[in-house]
């Protein structure tokens, strides 16, 4: 059972595949789990007006964002039969091709994790005050909108 202590969801820089792998490994001890589902948000090298996005620099209203992440977690635990849930979001610069969002849900059975994961990711996109500055290869930038 997860407790309601607000966690810091943010990590400085990209979320590494090693970190993601370790998170999966940690769940081997939780043997009531029968299904995991993982969402990984990756920085896309969009081409905008002939210029290529090379990185996104993330900032956030951290106090409000961590509160929102906590509300989303609590609501998801109410709505879905989940064993556990982990959310990590990058701050600072994340290059194209690197991971900036990691959402990991686990439950005894599979059907619930499909629905829960989509719900959580959409809630994050819509309601958490995180701001992405798309940096182009020529070092100009524009602000991303979801």
């Amino acid at each position: 059972m997860e407790t309601r202590t607000p966690k810091n969801v943010f990590k400085q820089g990209a979320i590494s595949s090693g970190f993601i792998g370790d998170s999966i490994a940690k769940h081997q001890a939780k043997t009531s789990i029968g299904a995991h589902n993982i969402f990984l948000g990756q920085v896309r090298a969009d081409v905008i007006g002939g210029k290529i996005v090379s990185a996104i620099e993330f900032t956030a209203y951290e106090a409000m964002a961590n509160q929102k992440f906590d509300e989303i977690r609590e609501a998801a635990f109410q709505k879905f039969e989940l064993t556990c849930m982990h959310i990590f979001h990058s701050l600072g610069t994340v290059k194209a091709g690197e991971i900036c969002l990691f959402v990991f849900v686990s439950a005894p059975r599979r059907k619930v994790v499909y629905k829960a994961l989509e719900h959580i990711v959409e809630e994050i996109k819509a309601n958490v005050p995180v701001f992405g500055k798309e940096i182009f290869e020529d070092e100009t930038h524009q602000w991303k909108k979801n």
Binding site: M64, Q67, I124, A126
Partner: peptide
Amino acid sequence: DRALVTVETRLTGEEIALLPPFSGG
């Protein structure tokens, strides 16, 4: 105070934040 409000809301003296469109993920 870390919650979205409408423009008709009364000021309490708590922290105000101006938030452009969200673009996390």
